[in-house]
Every structure is written in structure tokens, then in C-alpha cells.
């Protein structure tokens, strides 16, 4: 791989910004920024399936909350040490991914979306009712991360950057090419001698695992798990963030998450009717700006400079 300044410079600037942010962001800002990072990882993991694999999952909350509850139950109910909690969290996500992948990957498009949605709601139904283990509607509170918000901010952004780098490597490898092939034309992948189900399953498990990592970070940041993270409306978060940012690029979901979280934070200060803005933005994106923010920036601005130079 060649070293490309145009691609590396924005990334380095972004990393520097993240690094310096706690110095001027204030306590709430730092907390919000950690949250944005975690949700960005969630969206990037989701977009492995959506943007690259062509599969719209409406049930990624299953993997997010699977890891969160795995961690919470291990720490608070079983009273195990933190590191086993992390392992249990990821293990739960992995098992969920195997089962959900087996059931949902027989389908495409709407069916796939519906089956993932139903499976995540199955878990939600269990979480709400299995009170003595999951805490029911109240969830599990009192999970200690054992460090200050600022320290945790650096820890979680490190994990986020490393995870994203791994996802990026996977997506730009030959496996990523195969996955895009499946999105474009699964029949041709089959007749290229590859098992489409295997490709989809591997991508599914990857996507779920990094979603689980996000779920674990989220739980440690909040110090609690609530059923809200297993509800399907939480599955919609990466869907919307990715569409705002643009699913066709790696950075799209990250940009989208920033906009989504900051807009929510800002608008809810002034009105309780934040959803109506979100809804209208979604309508506008679907009808007029299907490339998302990254798509717009690329089409309207960058392409003028890049075209000609790229060939």
C-alpha cells in the first residue's frame, strides 16, 4: 500500500483533535465525545454489513446489548472480575451472532431486516421479563470502570481507533472485495467458486463482534445497562447515522454519528420534539441526498479537484 497524504492527513488531524479534546471540551463534552466515539464504532461495524455487504440489519442492538448484558451480569450478578466480564460480553455477542446469522442469512433485503429485527426483540422481551438476572426494566446499575471519565475517554478512543483500523484492514483486503462482490451480485460470487453464505457469515460475525466491543465500552462509560440498548429503536441509531453520513465510504458512518449525536444534544436543549427534526432529515436524505454527507462533499466539492488527477 502506498502512503497517500490526501488520505492520511485528515485522519491524523482527526486523531489529534480527539487527543486534545479533553483539554478544552469540559467534563460533559468529554463524556459526549466518548459517547460519539463508541456510537461511531457501532455505526462502522454496522456498515460492514450494510454499505459493504448490502445487508440492512435492523437488529444490531442484539449484539450491542448482548455484550453489555454479558458484561453486566458477569460483574454484578455473578460477581466475577472485570476481565472475565469483558470476555463473557464478547462471547455472548459471538454466540448471538452465530445463531442470528444462521437464521437471518438465509434471507436478503426486507426479510433479512425483519428477521434481525425480530431476533433482537426476542432478546429484548427476555431482558424485560427475566428480572432477577437482567434487572428487568431497571437494568443493571453500579458497574465500575475503575477510572476517571478522562482516563476512560483515552482508553475507549484507543480501543475505537484500533478496532476501526482492524475493520478498515479487513474491508480493504481480498475479503472486503469478496464482500462487495456479494453485495453487487451474489450469483456471480457463487459461480466464482466462493460460498456466498460463508462470506456473509464471516462478515456478520465481524460486524457483530465490533458492535459488541462498542456495547462493552458504552456499558463501562455509563456504569449501567438498561433495556433501552436492546430495543429496536437502538438498532435504528447506526442505520440513521450511516445514512446521514453516507454508507458508501468508510468515514460516512463516523461523520453521520457526529452529526446525529451533536444534533440530538443541541436540539433537545430547546425542544422535546427532536424526533420530528430527525424524521424530516431522514425524509430529505432518502429523497434528495442518498449519498449522505460524505457523498455530497465528494460529489459537489472534492470531485472537482480530484477528477483528472485521479486517473
Amino acid at each position: 500500500m502506498k502512503f497517500d497524504v490526501r488520505k492520511t492527513a485528515p485522519f491524523a488531524l482527526f486523531a489529534l483533535f480527539v487527543f486534545l479534546f479533553p483539554l478544552f471540551g469540559g467534563k460533559y463534552g468529554t463524556f459526549l465525545m466518548a459517547r460519539i466515539g463508541i456510537l461511531s464504532l457501532y455505526a462502522v461495524a454496522f456498515n460492514v454489513l450494510f454499505g459493504y455487504g448490502g445487508l440492512l440489519s435492523f437488529g444490531h442492538a442484539l449484539f450491542f446489548s448482548g455484550a453489555a448484558y454479558g458484561l453486566g451480569i458477569a460483574l454484578l450478578v455473578l460477581d466475577w472480575p472485570l476481565w472475565t466480564g469483558l470476555l463473557i460480553g464478547l462471547l455472548v455477542t459471538f454466540l448471538f451472532a452465530l445463531v442470528a446469522g444462521f437464521l437471518s442469512l438465509r434471507h436478503k433485503e426486507i426479510h433479512f431486516a425483519m428477521v434481525t429485527l425480530a431476533l433482537s426483540m426476542l432478546f429484548w422481551g427476555i431482558v424485560m421479563k427475566w428480572r432477577h438476572v437482567t434487572g428487568g426494566e431497571d437494568g443493571l446499575a453500579g458497574i465500575s470502570r475503575g477510572m476517571s471519565v478522562r482516563a476512560f475517554y483515552y482508553l475507549s478512543w484507543t480501543v475505537i481507533f484500533v478496532s476501526m483500523a482492524v475493520v478498515y484492514r479487513i474491508l480493504s483486503s481480498d475479503f472486503g472485495l469478496l464482500l462487495r462482490g456479494v453485495r453487487e451480485n451474489d450469483l456471480r460470487v457463487l459461480f466464482s467458486g466462493h460460498s456466498v453464505r460463508r462470506v456473509r457469515m464471516i462478515a456478520f460475525v465481524f460486524s457483530a463482534l465490533f458492535t459488541g466491543v462498542a456495547g462493552i465500552l458504552w456499558t463501562l462509560l455509563d456504569g449501567a445497562v438498561t433495556p433501552a440498548v436492546s430495543h429496536w429503536s437502538f438498532s435504528a441509531v447506526p442505520v440513521i447515522a450511516t445514512l446521514i453520513g453516507g454508507p458508501q465510504s468508510f468515514a460516512g458512518p463516523i461523520v453521520g454519528t457526529f452529526v446525529y449525536v451533536l444534533a440530538e444534544d443541541y436540539i433537545t436543549k430547546y425542544t422535546m420534539y427532536w424526533q420530528i427534526f430527525l424524521g424530516l432529515v431522514i425524509l430529505a436524505i432518502v429523497l434528495f441526498f442518498r449519498g449522505g454527507i460524505v457523498g455530497i462533499v465528494y460529489d459537489r466539492i472534492l470531485s472537482r479537484f480530484v477528477s483528472g488527477g485521479e486517473e
Partner: peptide, 26 residues
């Protein structure tokens, strides 16, 4: 191996990438 009546390629990938995918299964 086979080809299809309606041309069956990866429309959204480059020609090189198109050829690379089947090569990967060797």
C-alpha cells in the same frame, strides 16, 4: 464454469476487481 444469458458481472467493481474475485477461489 458458466456464463449467463444476461451478462452477469460485478457492475459496481472495476474490471480488475471483477477478475480478481474468481481468482481468489483457486
Amino acid at each position: 464454469g458458466r456464463t449467463f444469458q444476461i451478462t452477469n458481472i460485478f457492475q459496481g467493481l472495476t474490471v480488475r476487481e471483477n477478475v480478481r474475485i474468481p481468482l481468489l477461489s483457486r
